[in-house]
């Protein structure tokens, strides 16, 4: 995965969560499935998406929450 594709992937994940703020809680697994579909032509794997999620949470752009199951959210 190129740096450019990785940046696009991270942006797409953040935008997805932003778009559904207060409407839907995305489990990390949901995001993996959404991104697999969205980036199917780019050859992005599940592991690539998991790494992108890890980088986003490490940098603080996304945070984890829990409500009956773990989900990802934008920082408050």
């Amino acid at each position: 995965m190129t740096d450019e594709t990785k940046a696009q992937l991270e942006e797409a994940i953040v935008n997805l969560i932003k778009e559904f703020t207060n409407r839907k809680r995305f489990k990390p697994g949901d995001i993996v499935k959404e991104m697999e579909m969205k980036f199917s032509a780019s050859g992005i794997t599940k592991d690539d998406i998991k790494i992108a999620i890890r980088d986003l949470t490490d940098s603080g752009r996304l945070i984890y929450g829990y409500a009956g199951g773990s989900f990802l959210s934008l920082p408050e």
Partner: peptide, 17 residues
């Protein structure tokens, strides 16, 4: 009440709100 947005940076587990 439990759950919510509590944790340490980068981790999604280890803290039970």
């Amino acid at each position: 009440k439990h759950g919510g947005m509590v944790g340490v940076k980068g981790y999604g587990g280890g803290i039970v709100g």
